[in-house]
């Protein structure tokens, strides 16, 4: 996993609530057996017409917006557990997703992929949308160590929560599996002692 420490970037606004992972990457694009190229189909049916031409009014196609931060409406990433949604976001070049509320599985997947999900209040989310509306080029600063998200121009700053273990993983580029493998003696001890009727 790539390390994440700090980022200063513009942001792409997607002020829609309940964005489900079927929209982030529709099921018909889940047929690969390798993790590559998913960014091309990120938000496929919102981003492209049936003939493959881009929909001009969709934020990813709007020349006014760019950056490595996606700002989504409340309840972002609901529905299917498909990690392909995170792969598509990452492959497109995004590193941070901000929302006022995330679905559990999506949030967990992001943290396992090196994408930082930042949950802010609904009020601050609206402040962010307004800041981008007023100045499309406005920049945001993300500092994972300090757990801070800032609107650079105004200096408005909020802190965000993250599990300390996951934070350490992101900063160092570690993943869960290396850590869990290092305690294999505890796993085997568990197996010996547990009540199990299926073995």
């Amino acid at each position: 996993m790539d390390k994440f420490t700090t980022l200063v970037s513009r942001a792409i606004p997607l002020p829609i609530e309940d964005v489900d992972t079927d929209q982030i990457i529709p099921a018909r694009f889940l047929k690969a057996t390798k993790r590559e190229g998913f960014g091309d189909n990120l938000f496929r049916d919102w981003r492209y017409n049936n003939d493959g031409s881009p929909k001009a009014d969709f934020p990813l196609n709007d020349a006014r917006f760019s950056g490595q931060i996606l700002i989504g409406g409340k309840n972002f990433g609901s529905g299917s557990s498909r990690e392909h949604a995170g792969w598509a976001i990452y492959d497109y070049g995004l590193r941070v997703v901000v929302s006022s509320f995330f679905a559990d599985i999506f949030k967990g997947n992001c943290l396992n992929l090196g994408i930082l999900p930042i949950q802010v209040s609904e009020e601050f989310l609206q402040t962010i949308f307004k800041a981008i509306e007023e100045d499309n080029e406005t920049e945001f600063r993300v500092d994972l160590e300090a757990q801070e998200f800032e609107i650079v121009k105004t200096g408005e700053k909020v802190s965000f929560d993250i599990d300390p273990y996951k934070k350490n993983n992101l900063i160092n580029g570690y993943d869960d599996i290396d850590y869990i493998r290092s305690i294999s003696d505890k796993i085997e001890a568990y197996e010996k002692n547990a009540t199990r009727f299926y073995v």
Partner: peptide
């Protein structure tokens, strides 16, 4: 419960998951 592919890999490799 449902899990992402990174977690599928974790269960393959360790039969365990790190969970909040």
């Amino acid at each position: 419960f449902g899990i992402g592919t990174s977690q599928v890999e974790s269960v393959f490799a360790t039969q365990c998951l790190l969970l909040a």
